[in-house]
Design a protein around this nucleic acid. Structure first.
Lengths: 236, 236
DNA sequence: AATTGTGAAGGAGTTCACAGCC
DNA sequence: GGCTGTGAACTCCTTCACAATT
């Protein structure tokens, strides 16, 4: 979690002179922007209202307007938001370029599946390298790529311009792998191992622990009685 | 997200007479309990302090104490918490029994990997059924199970006592699959499809969208300069 | 008339700080 | 002396409600 006090705008900042495009966004807003992006990509009209966008994303309309207002005033009163323009603005804010290069470290069941998973390419992420320590796995072909040995990590990452890594090793190997990735210059790690990895402050680390997700789900599933959170028990 | 106002304790509830073991926990606390559970499972001493537990989970010690106080007063002042007792209490709260039966719907890359993924069994979840619509996939063996046709869903779920489902279909099929699962009596769904599914209030739905996770990560990865959230950009 | 953008109110979650207990 | 449990302060997030704009 760590909703860390990462908000660097000190109280008396020169408000007017601050370029809105460079300001940091509230964490909660950042977590919703990709969802808006998905709704927008499915939109059929050229323009969309906060009401519709909210319905598609499963949030309150005022929430949508406040979120979008953090990017600037891109809507038109009485009309709504221009879909394609909004897509561009959100993409820019999220640092989504056409081609963010991804490596996968640890080719077990999950790593193997993610390497073949089409969902990433569809969103502009391209898996360009896969690594494993096991000599039996190294050299095999997985999703069109040859599995490289862990020793070549730094070299290959440099060579292929990898920016993000998916960490799918066992928990026991996660920290060492993360260290190697950081050393090699990767600045974003999505950690699927059931263990928290430490990293220097300039590296973004996000954890997706499927066991934790299931256990949380289990809790809500047992609150079956009258008033569970039902439809949607938060996924931020 | 939807941090929905799901808190049903009305203001004037008879405070003293409320059984703490049945009270609903704050969402944020529920999200952290599985993490504590993991730290506890790795503990070497019989007893642990909030400081140590907090360090292992990556949160503030006061946070740990407040979270645990929601379960009741299970600590000993001057000493700490009894590890095995605490494990039992948290497990009970989360509704974790030894054997929660899980079905996987949609045996593409991800579904296939999850079916073979050992991490679930290790935590008391047992995958007992896998389904797909594709006649070429039906009948194949995946992780020791034969893929059943979608038409047999209700039957098999009833027969095997399935409680939770992992939804790994394409987005376009997710809602129909969710409806069938609800109809069949499943009360918890972990949705990996990049689409929001609707469900009645008594069914818990959680979404894990890997594309969204990557896009959020991408944002923090581009905030490389001085003060990114670094080490840990929230995984709620 | 419709819909945005936002100040203000309200809630939820976090952290502090310390009394209470072992 | 060490550590828990918790009121109180604080920060962040959400929702309301309405003026501003097309």
């Amino acid at each position: 979690m760590s909703r860390a006090g990462a908000h660097g705008d000190w109280p008396g900042a020169p408000v007017g002179s601050w370029d809105v495009s460079l300001r940091r966004l509230p964490e909660a807003t950042v977590a919703r922007l990709p969802v808006y992006l998905r709704v927008l990509s499915e939109a059929t009209e050229a323009t969309i209202s906060s009401d519709h966008l909210a319905a598609g994303a499963g949030v309150n309309a005022a929430q949508v307007r406040k979120d979008l207002s953090h990017l600037g005033s891109y809507g038109t009163r009485g009309v709504g938001y221009d879909v394609s323009y909004l897509v561009r603005q959100i993409s820019r804010q999220l640092g989504l370029t056409d081609d963010r290069r991804v490596a996968i470290v640890g080719i077990g069941n999950l790593g193997h599946a993610l390497a073949r998973y089409g969902g990433f390419n569809a969103r502009g992420f391209r898996v360009v390298a896969v690594f494993d320590v096991d000599p039996r796995t190294v050299g095999q072909r997985v999703g069109g790529l040859v599995v490289e040995p862990f020793e070549r990590l730094a070299e290959v990452i440099e060579e292929k311009g990898v920016e993000l890594a998916l960490l799918t090793t066992p928990a026991s190997a996660a920290q060492a792998a993360a260290d190697a990735l950081v050393e090699a210059g990767v600045n974003s790690i999505l950690n699927f191992a059931p263990a928290r990895v430490a990293a220097p402050a300039h590296v973004a680390v996000r954890q997706v622990d499927l066991g934790v997700e299931l256990q949380i789900l289990s809790y809500y599933g047992t609150q079956v009685s009258a008033d569970g959170p039902g439809t949607d028990a938060a996924s931020g």
